[in-house]
Design a protein around this nucleic acid. Structure first.
Lengths: 341, 341
DNA sequence: CTGAAAGCGCTTACAG
DNA sequence: CTGAAAGCGCTTACAG
């Protein structure tokens, strides 16, 4: 039987090289305690017959798969898309593959994926958790599955978090808007359950207060980080008896939606209405005028997330990391008094 | 030992339920030939102790992993990004996971990924091949690894291809441009090695000829489907003694680059210069004016690719599929005579 | 330095 | 309907 089938196994190499499978394994893995002569013979034989170790068998034996699970709440969102790419890149550089899972913010789907990934014996789990708690997630955390959260945290779950803090940059943005003469500034914020949602809103209000400006309830809209919610919020704001002169959309997709509504009404940003966004997809600078926004260090976020996870996988206790965001001033809020870019 | 460790195995369930592991396996997999009584007992026990079969062990035994490898040439490109999401979605619906690999058009990296995925015993391979031939790819095809190409084909490799044909829509676009009075129309085409690159260029030239318009060599620029190449090409076109009045960028990223250059020079699309694109990322309609473009049925492409691959995996001979693209007329080429949207 | 053997956690002929 | 046993393809103590 052996050697007859299509797949070539370690036994085939052993037979042809005239050694045991143990020796083949050692020779090929670079373990020491193999004579140079035998090592050479083995690796030549392996090359000749095109042997590649079956990772499944190896993993079953070693209980390590060199595979990471990546569970993302919305990969279509350019922010998460870029993040996913950065993560794959970093994982690959460390010899890990990544299984991609998209939950669309669906908690039960998230749970399904977590179970699936665990059954597949992934070494670690990287996720941007859906908004609500979920049983499988709690269970995984409790059982000590190596895991790190990216961008979001869950209050009751203790897991290292890698994310970017938008507070300082949001304050810079408020200063920028106020500097341009805006006083009636609205915010389209993210869901209150998310750290990023709360944080951007809190920083916004705090800084407005610092400038002696109040933010009436009607100027605070809560979206869900998706395009449609941005459009709806913008419509509500523009329908106000006294609409805002500036709008801060706390995510690239909600900014996209807001822009949609603004355009639909024949208004122009930077002139009829100031609009600032969050995140910095490539097309932000191609809008007319280019979009002023708060950018996150996406690539670094991905790298750090993988690094942190791999520490946990290696048995070390990893800690959370918070990076800084930065304000990128363009012209969507009117001509800047002191343009920085 | 058994039962002491953290992971709970089939042996633990067997012992507690008082049956053999064979029976547990049968009961849980739903195989028939198990009494209702035993089945109940087993599944209750399994639930109680939180047993989940180790997929690695299962795969080693069954030689099927229910995992697909997805090798994409450039996931950051929104077209490929959307495609990847659609593929993951479709695969998941059929019970398959997908390992994401990004080659950045690097042939050697593509080969590395192919080897890696094969070592991981994936059931099938989905890829948008890098431009050049590559040894590992040829080998995989030759050895009959279930495989389908998406969006691109490789001349010497016989593998089913799932893609969208842009010829008809490109002709529609030329008609549209000519209808608006344009005669000096340039194209920023994709690499000649790609089917999509050649196809869009060929259709463009053929249709221009049909209108009795010639396309001088200087109006044909070849990019690489990336942003920078679109910018460079646009710059060259605008620097011509007699620049074109309309530009067709045959990919969303090259359109983005071209737009960049156009803006940089203070020109406005739809007025100073007509610009049409390919693909339809969400922000195309938010440009000012919104971008006229040729859209691909990305989601269907993904679904069909997975469907085709799974046929091959199941041992059937699958064939290639070609879908149609559609012209979406907006206003980036000037006011349309008979606007369709 | 090398080999025989056990075992990772399953599934599946083969018996009964 | 159920179980004992073999085996998927590796790695790794254990001997020598």
């Amino acid at each position: 039987m052996a050697g007859t089938g299509l797949r070539v196994t370690i036994a085939d190499v052993a037979k042809l090289a005239g050694v045991s499978t143990a020796t083949v394994s050692r020779a090929l893995s670079g373990a020491d305690g193999v004579s140079a002569q035998v090592r050479k013979k083995v690796s030549e034989t392996a090359d000749r017959i095109g042997y590649r170790p079956n990772e499944l068998a190896r993993s079953l034996r070693t209980t390590r798969t060199r595979t990471l699970g990546l569970v993302v709440s919305d990969v279509v969102n350019p922010f998460f898309g870029e993040l996913a790419v950065a993560i794959e890149e970093a994982a690959h550089a460390s010899g890990f593959s990544v299984i991609l899972c998209n939950t669309n913010e669906d908690t039960s789907r998230q749970d399904e994926y977590i179970q699936l990934l665990r059954a597949r014996q992934i070494d670690g789990l990287l996720l941007t958790p859906a908004l609500d708690e979920s049983p499988a997630l709690r269970a995984a955390a409790l059982e000590g599955i190596p895991m790190v959260f990216v961008d979001r945290a869950l209050p009751a779950v203790e897991v290292p978090v890698v994310r970017a803090d938008g507070r300082r940059a949001t304050k810079d943005l408020v200063d920028h808007l106020v500097g341009l003469g805006h006083e009636r500034i609205a915010i389209i914020s993210g869901p209150r359950q998310t750290l990023t949602g709360r944080e951007r809103l809190d920083a916004f209000r705090a800084r407005m207060r610092r400038h002696g400006l109040r933010v009436p309830r009607e100027l605070i809209r809560v979206g869900n980080f998706q395009m449609r919610s941005g459009r709806v919020a913008a419509a509500e704001l523009l329908d106000l008896d006294e609409p805002p002169t500036a709008v801060f959309a706390a995510d690239n997709l909600m900014a996209l939606g807001a822009l949609h509504e603004i355009r639909r009404r024949g208004l122009r940003i930077g002139r009829d209405l100031a609009l600032a966004g969050f995140d910095d997809p490539p097309w932000f600078q191609l809008l007319d005028p280019p979009m002023t926004t708060v950018a996150q260090p996406v690539k670094k976020l991905g790298e750090l997330a993988v690094e942190t996870l791999l520490q946990t996988v290696a048995g070390a206790t990893a800690s959370s990391h918070v990076l800084e965001c930065s304000l990128i001033v363009r012209n969507s809020c009117g001509e800047a008094l002191s343009p920085r870019q």
